[in-house]
């Protein structure tokens, strides 16, 4: 249209100038007012920042409307062009809002992704810390396990030691039992030809002189030796004891003779017992002569009882003794 006008005669141009001067006060159409307002709005808003190229196109459209307004204020052309320009501006603004919205969403999505990564990172860190603690606990358990193994081994060693001690003890006990058994048997055998009595702590074995010696002899009879072997066995069965062999006579001969005879007889018995294995240091011989009768010397029977050999068995204090 504007081209058409420009191609018309100078007369028309003149007329138009006149018209313009005449209409200089004609206000812009509602459409142009609306378009201008929309443009001001758009230029101050997101559209200028986010959709500069599209906004420039809308500006061109608005300029076209402005030219139409200058050419012919209030014309239908101005109205149409302004109408179109306003729609274009509104369209650009709608596009700008969409872009802004998309950007916002993208930012939110990125923030979420970042937070997620951060959360994963701290989760990983917590897991690592837990792994570390686990490793530490495992190490402590291993150490404790080693200590327990050592203690178990020590306990086993102690246990087998105790078992060995127990066994040793049992053996000792059995030996002792066997020894006591032998002693009991020996004592039983002894009682067939000897009398036994207790004198305070001592055991006194009394052997009748007639079973050991011929009259006035200090040499043991052959039959006496078998009996004294039983005595030796009984003595050896007793532990921690000392023995005193005492010789006794009746009162028929002189004191000095009886003293010598009783001493000689006691020594014969002692020597025989030593030959049978009784420790020499544990046994001594003493002659008592006729000084300690156990019966009257007035009768034959009494005198026979007084002719005797006594063996005093004294238990030694176990703490100070050593055989």
């Amino acid at each position: 249209m504007s081209y058409l006008l420009k191609t018309t005669s100078s007369a028309l141009a003149f007329a138009c100038l006149l018209a313009l001067s005449a209409c200089g006060t004609t206000p812009p159409s509602d459409e142009l007012v609306a378009a201008r307002s929309a443009m001001t709005n758009a230029q101050g808003g997101e559209a200028a920042r986010l959709e500069p190229e599209e906004l420039r196109q809308a500006e061109l459209a608005l300029q076209e409307a402005e030219r139409a307004h200058e050419d012919e204020p209030g014309s239908q052309l101005e109205r149409d062009l302004a109408y179109v320009a306003e729609r274009k501006i509104l369209t650009v603004q709608a596009r700008a809002r969409q872009t802004a919205s998309r950007n916002e969403l993208e930012a939110e999505r990125e923030a979420y992704t970042e937070d997620l990564e951060q959360a994963n990172l701290s989760r990983q860190q917590r897991l690592d810390a837990i792994d570390e603690q686990l490793a530490e606990v495992r190490g402590q358990l291993d150490e404790r396990g080693d200590v327990i193994d050592e203690q178990t081994e020590a306990l086993r060693a102690r246990e087998s030691e105790l078992v060995a001690q127990q066994q040793e003890l049992n053996e000792t006990r059995q030996e002792r039992d066997a020894a006591q058994q032998r002693l009991a048997e020996a004592m039983a055998a002894l009682e067939e030809f000897a009398t036994l009595r207790r004198e305070q702590e001592d055991l006194v074995i009394t052997l009748n002189g007639s079973v050991l010696f011929e009259s006035d002899e200090s040499e043991l009879m052959g039959t006496a030796e078998r009996r004294l072997q039983a005595v030796a066995q009984a003595l050896q069965g007793r532990d921690q004891s000392t023995f005193v062999v005492e010789g006794h006579t009746d009162s028929r001969a002189s004191d000095s003779y009886n003293q010598r005879l009783s001493q000689a007889r006691a020594e014969s018995v002692r020597n025989f017992l030593v030959s049978q294995g009784v420790a020499e240091s544990d046994i001594r011989a003493v002659g008592r002569g006729e000084a300690e009768p156990v019966a009257s010397n007035d009768t034959a029977e009494g005198r026979a009882n007084n002719r005797r050999v006594e063996i005093h068995v004294t238990k030694t204090d176990q703490r100070q003794s050593s055989r």
Binding site: Q76, L77, D80, L81, Y83, V84, R87, K88, L90, T91, A94, R95, R97, Q98, S101, R102, E104, L105
Partner: peptide, 27 residues
Amino acid sequence: NRLLMRAESDAELAIALAEEAELRTEA
């Protein structure tokens, strides 16, 4: 022709507004 231009600009604006509404729902 100018009515057609006006109609087109309204249609284009309608497209932008419709897409904006859809985007709003999607957002």
